[in-house]
């Protein structure tokens, strides 16, 4: 019976230690959240201005040297379906009938999160959040696991299923290589006739967005989508109707996606360091005197 008491005491001591470590570890991880680079650029998208001309899609195709589209970019029959981004189109515009005579268009592309879930989920570090604000992708190290496609809260990364020998994850890179790193706006922003998209420092755009809401009472819903969603995104949106009605997830969490697993992942080092010692101890205690004194074991069975 003494051995049994020792065993329970040992377990309790180990449990308390583990709990202490995990609490301390959890705090340390939470403090490491990222507020974004101070001079990161962003884009403010005003849905009320978009007329659905698809110029942005055409400009993106040319800038990123994407394959030929199935239909010309001035063909509006594509609005029959709600399209998503693909390996051939890093941005697509969808049409939403929001009222009897009111139609809104919504351009979708990578929102370039401050704390990108694609980046967090990638175990070969193929993704980088640049100081300019872009989330870029290194095809050379990608192993094609597609974790990023599952992790992305906006369903943006696409996969080149068409090339079985060298498939890549493909998505908008904010025209980083050709424009953003030189301080220029991306091709879609440049070509837009309506200036649906305003390019600028993210910090300035947040202010601009709220100013625009305030200066036009009744025009916009009082929300800047992307200011807080999943820890903030470089691309932010203004809308005249609820964001749910124009293809957004209006109930998206404000915490970065990585926060969902940060606490859990904080346990992993603890498990790796403590569990071997803990269970070795358990094993030793449980098997103590096992070789010499068989009578005790027999006693337990009675």
């Amino acid at each position: 019976m003494i051995e049994r008491r020792d065993f329970l005491k040992g377990c309790l001591a180990c449990g308390v230690t583990a709990a202490t470590v995990s609490v301390a570890g959890g705090k340390a991880m939470a403090a490491g959240s990222f507020e974004g680079y101070p001079d990161a650029m962003g884009v403010l998208v005003d849905l009320t201005r978009c007329v659905g001309c698809r110029s942005c899609e055409a400009a993106c195709n040319a800038e990123q040297k994407l394959p030929e589209p199935d239909l010309p970019f001035d063909d509006t029959s594509v609005f029959k379906d709600k399209r998503r981004t693909t390996e051939k189109a890093y941005t697509v515009v969808n049409e939403y009938k929001v009222a009897d005579k009111e139609t809104l268009y919504r351009k979708m592309q990578c929102n370039h999160c401050t704390e990108p879930a694609c980046l967090s989920s990638c175990f070969v570090n193929a993704y980088t959040k640049t100081k300019e604000g872009a989330v870029i992708y290194n095809a050379k190290v990608c192993v094609g696991c597609r974790n990023c496609m599952i992790a992305c809260p906006f369903n943006i990364p696409a996969y080149s299923y068409s090339s079985p020998l060298n498939p890549l994850v493909q998505k908008c890179i904010f025209c980083y290589d050709t424009r953003l790193k030189d301080g220029k706006p991306p091709a879609c922003v440049d070509i837009c006739p309506q200036q649906v998209m305003t390019f600028g420092r993210r910090a300035d755009l947040i202010k601009l967005g709220h100013d625009r809401i305030q200066a036009n009472p009744g025009k916009y819903v009082d929300k800047l989508y992307g200011e807080k969603a999943v820890g903030g995104t470089s691309w932010m949106y203004l809308s005249s109707v609820d964001f749910d009605k124009v293809g957004f997830d209006g109930h998206i969490q404000n915490e970065p996606i990585i926060s969902n697993v940060k606490d859990f992942l904080g346990f992993v080092p603890m498990v790796l360091s403590i569990w071997p010692a803990l269970f070795t101890g358990v094993h030793l205690l449980a098997t103590k005197n096992k070789d010499g004194h068989h009578d005790h074991e027999e006693g337990d069975h009675q």
Binding site: S55, A58, A59, N61, A62, E68, P69, D70, L71, P72, F73, D74, D75
Partner: peptide, 17 residues
């Protein structure tokens, strides 16, 4: 740029389109 007019995608290559 718009892949329209004489630059339109060739329909036979894309039967679905």
């Amino acid at each position: 740029l718009f892949k329209s007019g004489k630059y339109a995608p060739k329909a036979p290559a894309k039967p679905q389109a």
